[in-house]
Nucleic acid binder design. Structure first.
Lengths: 168, 168
DNA sequence: CTTAGTGCAAAACATTTGCATTTAT
DNA sequence: ATAAATGCAAATGTTTTGCACTAAG
């Protein structure tokens, strides 16, 4: 029970606008495949399936999660192919990866990227609005000329439920 | 983004109080060894040397750095022994580790722990005062009941020199 | 003596790479 | 036909673990 009541926040958080279909931003599966083709790349089954998996849900998924999902339909797609394609799509700007703690990286479409607060005890990942980092961004810039990228690495700590508990 | 002159900062940063001898906080090498003994633990060469290495400098050092240093004097100390002892000393509260990016973890005495801003391009690690995170701490608590631990994982981004440059 | 601690080899884990083969164009 | 992409095996880098042996108490 660590229900402090801290100072009034300096901004308000609009809960979670249910943007169910993430196809609006700039790209759908076919659009990205077209980009690939335009660059001299080739449209393969592995690529199409990977993009389908990424577009169909905005969950945090690791390379292994994605491999498992893809292998249900195309069992021969190797995880090294997944990694190579994730890299390629990241270079293209279609997706980004984030580190939520000690385990493997998670991948999502750039259009749904966000920061995270991750509990180092129970592992829960809270999706944080960028406003939460605005003050830090301003101060880091002012004091160190440093531009933070709060989406790439999560901020660790203790979630509400775990904040009173033992350190392990 | 990339705002050139941000708002006036809300706190001031006292440069770096030259606390040259970190033996004050709670423990010197022999004090920690005594703690270990009190717990039913044993004082070994590997442990003494590891503590000496940790107390003699407050740099960010990886397990491998520490192993190299220790092996100059005691070549048979194996890195797995280093890891086991680092874990043990962390459980004891004498030291902590931090993740500054993709590579190996770095270890330091708890008494000199601090947060970091790490450039994802050139890798430079800026030691940040805790005040920098105060606003984020308050807002994360207010909005999510989340208690941040900004020392465990660095905040990534772009340092002054790298902020204009190409994304790779 | 007793058992905590060690050294070593091997495993675990996430990710990358070399290379011969397949396949989209 | 040609070069991009793939599958597989092997290597990478960091950390952990099993186990027989050494040494601190």
């Amino acid at each position: 029970m660590a229900d402090q009541h801290p100072d009034a926040p300096t901004w308000s958080y609009a809960p979670d606008m249910s943007q169910a279909a993430p196809a609006t931003s700039s790209a759908s599966v076919e659009t990205v495949l077209a980009q690939l083709r335009a660059r001299g790349g080739r449209v393969t089954t592995a690529r199409r399936r990977l993009l389908q998996a990424l577009f169909e849900s905005s969950e945090h998924r690791t390379a292994e999660d994605l491999a498992a999902e893809i292998q249900e339909l195309a069992p021969d797609v190797h995880i090294s192919t997944i990694y190579r394609n994730l890299d390629e799509l990241e270079r293209l700007g279609v997706l980004v990866h984030a580190h939520l703690g000690h385990g493997p990286a998670t991948y999502h479409l750039s259009s749904v990227a966000h920061s995270h607060l991750v509990c180092e005890r129970c592992g829960v990942a809270i999706e944080a609005p960028d406003e939460l980092f605005r003050g830090l961004a301003v101060d880091a810039q002012a004091h160190f000329g440093f531009t933070i990228d709060p989406r790439h690495f999560a901020v660790l700590g203790r979630c509400k439920d775990c904040s009173g508990d033992t350190p392990a």
